[in-house]
Amino acid sequence: MPGEKKSEIASVWTRPRRQREQLSREQIVAEAVRLLDADGIEALSMRKLGTRLDAGATSLYRHVANKDELIELVVDEVYGELAVPAATGAADWREAAARSAYSLRAMILRHPWVASVLGQVGLIHLGPNVTKMSQRMAAVYDAAGFPADETEQALSTVISYVIGMATSEAAYLSLIARSGKTEREFAESLPAGTAGSAGTAGSAGTADAGDMRVGDPQQAREETFDYGLQRVLDGLAVRLGPVGG
């Protein structure tokens, strides 16, 4: 009818779930995560996903309107893997913040594609896992005693550090995977004094190449990550004074 307004569904999270169908949204999301983990974000398409599910793209569109909605769903799915401990007060906020940061780093290393799409998701329509975990992380900084107008900034500072470091680590590990070597073999093949090259602090958020040639390269990466994280938390602790620090 002329002038009649069509109702629009604003988000995938408000889309009614279809019942009694062979293919479910959960199956679609799980297979999309597997595809992304194996081949990266560039390989994701509704057609390719439909092929992997032995279903036509049309079947997928009954559950997910487009690729953007699918990305919202897969990001929310992997966010559900995060472990965010509660902070009961200023005395234990730092441990809770560090454990949350390590959990986020581990999730990104399991799903390296997620870092490239975090900026596209969650700005308007947040899924349940993203919402819950974001609130739990914010609560840690709130319990620390940050002023209300700084809580979100403190959290964003730590998250930005984690995403930056983990993205570099993921790129480095991807390089190793393509080489066909183990991480130790790759580290041992690096020439001495090549700091700043692939796999070193300049490009992959890892330890200096000289350090990686001896000892455990995975441990070197973890120590480098922790060093930076602790210095970020040191800086935030200054804002809290002697109790929160």
Rank of each mutant, 00 (worst) to 15 (best):
E81P: 08
F186N: 09
H63L: 08
Q120Y: 14
T206V: 11
R62A: 15
A187D: 03
S103C: 01
A144H: 05
A86G: 05
Y79L: 13
G199F: 00
A115H: 12
V121G: 12
T88M: 08
F186Y: 09
A87T: 03
G199W: 05
G80Q: 08
A101K: 07
A144E: 01
L109V: 02
S179D: 00
A171W: 00
T206F: 11
Q120H: 10
W93I: 05
M107P: 01
A192P: 06
S203Q: 06
Q135W: 12
L82E: 14
Y141R: 09
Y61H: 15
R110N: 10
R94Q: 11
S156N: 07
R105I: 02
S179I: 10
D142A: 00
E95F: 04
V130C: 06
A65D: 10
S189W: 02
E77S: 13
A90G: 00
H111P: 05
S100C: 00
Y141W: 01
R62V: 13
G199D: 02
Q135T: 13
T131Q: 11
E69C: 03
L109A: 03
K181N: 02
T151H: 06
D92H: 11
V74H: 00
A90T: 02
S100W: 01
A65Q: 04
I159L: 05
L109S: 08
V158N: 09
T167G: 07
I71F: 10
G164N: 14
E188W: 03
G164W: 05
I124T: 15
A171D: 10
A171T: 13
A170I: 15
G205K: 06
N66R: 02
D142S: 08
P147M: 13
G122L: 05
H111Q: 11
Q120C: 07
A154L: 05
Y102I: 06
A90K: 07
R110G: 02
A195V: 07
P147D: 15
T131C: 09
